[in-house]
């Protein structure tokens, strides 16, 4: 278990945490990519899912898009984008790929959430004279919120994982520590980088889990 001791030594040496290739800087890049792309993909996917769910149309699209997302390798998309003109714009390929892979879980979960609203409740709301817009905002969207948030959680975890792969095409983020370790044939550094990435991903998952468990009742859903 020499490697583990060496990886621990790598992690606890202050020199590896500072500077432009240091852990703090890479963590900042990773967080930035994750947050920006999560916001972008929510802005794209959620309105579409809410409207489609409200109208009850495009169900096949919502389901098939997540199957397609699984079949297309992230790495291939990253490299393909890198070789297109987009590749000339720094983080461009990474951001586009991240958004593309975050959209399916958001779309599918929000759509399923909207369709899962009790039809009795919808009918009652219509009976009260609510317009379509009121129905969407005051009834369906709030009731679908727990599933929408599940989608956001899956998308966030997926983003953390995809942002790691950005290192393979020379992008930033914690993945760079791993790829640099591979290039140097430095196994302890590879393991140290992997531990950092894994801990970061688990922390993101834990934050969402905490929100779900301890958040206000309307976040947890009626059954919580």
């Amino acid at each position: 278990m020499n490697t583990l001791a060496a990886a621990w030594a790598w992690l606890t040496s202050a020199a590896h945490w500072s500077g432009p290739a240091g852990v703090w800087h890479r963590l900042g890049e990773h967080l930035y990519l994750t947050v920006v792309c999560l916001a972008l993909s929510c802005a794209v996917a959620l309105p579409v899912a809410l409207v489609l769910g409200h109208l009850g149309r495009g169900g096949a699209l919502a389901v098939n898009i997540s199957n397609a997302g699984r079949a297309v390798p992230t790495f291939a998309v990253l490299v393909l984008l890198l070789l297109t003109p987009v590749g000339g714009y720094g983080d461009g390929p990474t951001i586009i790929a991240l958004v593309l892979f975050a959209i399916p879980p958001l779309l599918t979960n929000a759509y399923v959430g909207m369709r899962g609203v009790d039809p009795e409740v919808v009918r009652a709301a219509r009976g009260m004279g609510m317009t379509g817009r009121q129905l969407l905002w005051r009834v369906e969207a709030p009731l679908a919120l727990p599933l929408i948030l599940t989608g956001v959680r899956i998308a966030a975890v997926q983003l953390v994982a995809t942002a790691t792969l950005a290192a393979l095409i020379g992008g930033g983020g914690l993945g760079r520590i791993i790829t640099a370790g591979f290039n140097l044939a430095d196994t302890p550094q590879v393991v140290a980088g992997a531990v950092l990435v894994a801990v970061f991903a688990l922390l993101v998952e834990a934050v969402f889990e905490a929100v779900r468990k301890f958040g206000p009742r309307w976040v947890r859903g009626g059954a919580g």
């Binding site: 490697t3 583990l4 975890v157 953390v160 994982a161 995809t162 790691t164 792969l165 290192a167 393979l168 993945g175 791993i178 370790g181 591979f182 196994t187 590879v190 393991v191 980088g193 992997a194 531990v195 990435v197 894994a198 991903a201 688990l202 998952e205």
Partner: peptide, 17 residues
Amino acid sequence: TILYTIPSLAMFSLLLP
């Protein structure tokens, strides 16, 4: 579930030793 959360690149790297 924890195993599934770990990004693939990190998973392969953790198995390297």
